[in-house]
Each structure stands twice: as structure tokens, then as C-alpha cells.
Design a protein around this nucleic acid. Structure first.
Lengths: 257, 257
DNA sequence: TTCATTCTCGTACCCCCTACGGTAATGGTT
DNA sequence: AACCATTACCGTAGGGGGTACGAGAATGAA
């Protein structure tokens, strides 16, 4: 299993490799088992809990044993990410109509980030180029391609939509992570900073905030920024594609992002 | 200077505290000096380089000395963040017209993330409630308030715009960080994964990607998702406010996000 | 039986944050 | 001048982390 010299691709695509020759001492674990265990630990106790030592202990194995299956912790995280990306299930049965496909994507994505909030702690750039990540790209490209957009705009449109949805899901997940780590709800956290307004806040320097505050503008939020923004983006892309547009209401998907 | 029991607020607002009584041994450093040094290290070598040991060494002081000025590393990062937030200069002279104000905000924000890319590694939720962060909120609220939006929608509109711009700036900064850390450009990184297409990619499972690829859709990007999305959001918000809208082109601000 | 092959993992090194408690330096008071 | 409350300084130690190295154990094949 060893002898990976900075080569993560064969690990990401390991399920496409057909056979396996038996030679030498048989392994006690498998890449899949290590990755699954890491995901389970991260889901339960955060990405930090999925340390090499933690995973090894969970598997009743010495820490260094894991390096037989995985080149490094960073690569393991890549494997974890592509695994949950694939589990989102965008490759199977899916809606056909444009908005339904987008909604399906959003629902699955929010569900993924809720089940695996540690994803919000993994860098969104240069993601693992594995089957899970490619399935996502294929799905979103197919979604906007069905609208009849010119080929030069497909990628931008797909990235815009996926980016907006993902950003909202990540924000919600990050919120969950911090609430868990601190044991404080956002409301409690604000209460702890209550003295801000009495002691430190300078109303004269923040006239608009003061006005909004006094008018109750911070409490009665009429719109969710995520839904509002998504609506605008969908309308714009459909218009771009020359379809008739009706700005119907977008069903709720996000919790409190 | 000691005796902060989880009280970060007085540190964030330390410049609002007028006098300082002299008693006991005089300090060699100051909070401002510690924060400035940490920012300098993080700018030059990443957030990890701004470790307590690293900062102390830079100041020719023992590591534990820093804890006289700052309760913990996390609080120090909060201080760093609010410092650069304030340095953005949104509190001073600024444009008056709506779109110019938004552009001003975007320019300053991208400049901030380019000067301090480590910001992208700091959680965007529950930010430090200091003068720098409040100045930003005041600026964006004043910007959308001038449009005449109802008070219940001001916060959502401000958050939508700020969120879109910030997300793009963070993505660009994260890109910079990874390029620095790995010493690889994104192009080189893709080259390393060139074998993906020959060895692992299954064209039959990704028909749309294959079509777009063969049509050159991944190379000739006609639009920047950031600019495109921002345009749509601005149009929508202005429409909401009942203004006349002309979808004029939004000047380039982002680099390659 | 021997051997190449492969997996297992103890040790060691370097990095991080920070609790604790002792020590040094000051201004004010006696 | 001596003393003291106050504040700053920091050495030590303990608990995390990732992983390079190399010796030992288990297997199938020759």
C-alpha cells in the first residue's frame, strides 16, 4: 500500500482500480476504513478530533500504522472531503427541470454540511480532484447547460450558483462548529457583549446603526440574504438564457444562515 | 494589564480608554506593539508564523511575557482582525452615490485581503466586536440606507452585498495562501493532476464536462462570477428601492477570483 | 526452508498553547 | 532610607499535534 510519492490521485480514484495482488503481510485495515473512521470522529467531535493519534486509537492501532494507508494527514482530509462529496448523491436520480435541479443541489449540499460541519474548516480552493468532486461539477454544468446557455458561459454560471449555495452552507456549518466548540449559542454570545452598547459604543460615530437599532431593524429581518441572493441569481441566469422568468418565491432551504 | 477574565471588549476598545495610571513595574511592550508585530509576521509568513513563540522572539521577549498583554492566542487574533478592519479606512472620507460607495467598499476590502491574506483563515462568524468591525457595518448600512430601503430590509441588503464581496475577496486570499504554502501556482497544480484525464476520468460518466471541455468552455471564460453576481445583486436591490436601473457594466475589481 | 514483500509500530524530534509560581522593577508611603 | 503594594517578566512543565526513521512481524512463493 505504500510508495505514494505525493500521488493522491490513485487514492482518490481507488475504487476504479480493479484487482489487488496478494503479497506480503495482509493488512489489518483499509483506506476506506481509515477514511470512514476519520469522518465519524470529525462528525462527532470536530476535525481536530480526527487526529492521526485519535483515529489510530479508535482503530486500536498504533499511530504510525495509519501512514501505511495514507501519505499524510492533509491527504487524509482530501480523502474525507471527496468521500462526503460523493455521498451527496448527485450522480444518481435527479430532477430534470432547471430550478428543481438547483433546489435538489441546494438541499443535498446543506444536508451534507449539516452532517459534516467540519467541511467548513477545509479550504475551498484546490479541492480533491476525485469522483465525488467531479460528480458535483458534472451535475451543476448539466443543470445550466439544459438552459441553453452558450458554452463559454456555462462554467461561470455553474460556479456562481454553486458558489452562492456553498457559501451559505459553509456559513451555517461554521456557526454550528463555533457553537459546539464554545458551548454558547449566538444569542448567549451577544449577551456576553451586552456591555458594548452601554460602555463602548459611540452612537454619534454610528448614526445609521443607531437609527436601525432604534427602529428595530436588527430584530425583524424580513428576508434571508441567502434566499434573496439566490433568487436574483436564478432570475438573471434564466434571463441570460432567454427563458421566460417569473420571480416566484424560492422555497426555504437554509436554516438561519 | 492583567486580570482580563474572558473580557476581550476592553482590549478591542482600548483606544477609547483615556488615562492610564502608573503603578508597579513599567511595561516593556504594549498591546498595540504586540498586535502590530503579529500582523507583520502573519503578513510575511502566514498566520501560523504569528505564534506566541514567534511573536515573542521577534520582540526579544519570553513567550509567556505576551500573556501580560493578551489573554490568549485566540483573543490576539481577534485584535489583529479588528485592527486591519479599522485600517481599511471606511470611517473617513467616502463617496456619496450608492454604486460608488459599494465600489469603494469592494476596493478597500480586496486591498485588505490582499495585504493580509491570513484573514481568510479566520472564521467569519462571531467576529471581534471592535471599532474596526463596527465601522464596516456602519458604512454598509449607510450605503443601503441612502437608497431608501425600508428599515426592516436594510440589514439583509447590507449583509448580502458585504457577504458577496467578502466571499470573493476571501477566495482570492485563500488562493494566495495556498500558492505561497505549496510554492505552486494553480496552473502547476493542475499540471500535476494532468494524468487525471488520461488515467482516471470517465468521459461516459461526465458527458457535460466532456462537451464543455471539447468546446473550450473551461478556457474562454467570458465572465467573472464575482462581477456578474454583484451586478445582479445591485440591480435587484436598486429595483427593490424603486430606483431606475440601468445594468451598466461594473468596473473590474477582483483579480482572478 | 528461505526470502522478498508488505504491514506494524516504538522512538524521537520539532512544533504549538498556556497554567503556575517565582522573581524583578517600579512608585508611593512611612 | 526602608518598605510595600503593584505590576511586569519569564522558566518550567504538561498536554496537544504531525511524521521521519528503522527495526520487527507476518505472509505467499520459490
Amino acid at each position: 500500500m505504500a510508495d505514494f510519492t505525493g500521488r493522491i490521485l490513485p487514492l482518490l480514484w481507488r475504487r476504479s482500480i480493479p484487482a489487488r495482488k496478494a503479497a506480503g503481510r495482509p493488512p489489518r485495515l483499509s483506506v476506506d476504513l481509515v477514511v470512514a473512521t476519520a469522518i465519524r470522529l470529525a462528525d462527532a467531535s470536530g476535525l481536530d478530533a480526527a487526529s492521526m493519534a485519535g483515529i489510530a486509537a479508535e482503530l486500536s492501532v498504533a499511530t504510525m500504522t495509519l501512514y501505511t494507508y495514507v501519505p499524510s494527514r492533509d491527504d487524509l482530509v482530501d480523502l474525507m472531503v471527496d468521500e462526503v462529496f460523493g455521498d451527496r448523491g448527485l450522480a444518481g436520480a435527479a430532477p430534470v427541470e432547471f430550478r428543481e435541479r438547483v433546489r435538489f443541489y441546494a438541499d443535498r449540499t446543506f444536508a451534507m454540511y449539516r452532517a459534516h460541519p467540519w467541511l467548513a474548516r477545509v479550504s475551498p480552493v484546490r479541492p480533491p480532484i476525485g469522483p465525488g468532486m467531479l460528480a458535483e461539477r458534472e451535475y451543476m454544468l448539466a443543470t445550466v447547460a439544459a438552459l441553453g446557455l452558450p458554452i463559454g458561459r456555462l462554467d461561470a454560471a455553474a460556479l456562481t450558483l454553486a458558489g452562492h449555495i456553498t457559501a451559505a452552507a459553509r456559513l451555517e456549518a461554521e456557526n454550528t462548529l463555533i457553537s459546539r466548540a464554545t458551548g454558547l449559542t449566538t444569542a448567549t454570545w451577544w449577551q456576553q457583549r451586552g456591555e458594548l452598547w452601554e460602555t463602548w459604543f459611540d452612537a454619534a460615530a454610528h448614526p445609521t446603526m443607531t437609527t436601525v437599532w432604534n427602529g428595530g431593524g436588527f430584530e425583524a429581518q424580513e428576508q434571508d440574504p441567502y434566499e434573496y441572493g439566490l433568487c436574483l441569481l436564478l432570475d438573471g441566469i434564466e434571463t441570460e438564457a432567454g427563458h421566460a422568468v417569473s420571480r416566484d418565491s424560492w422555497p426555504r432551504t437554509a436554516g438561519d444562515a
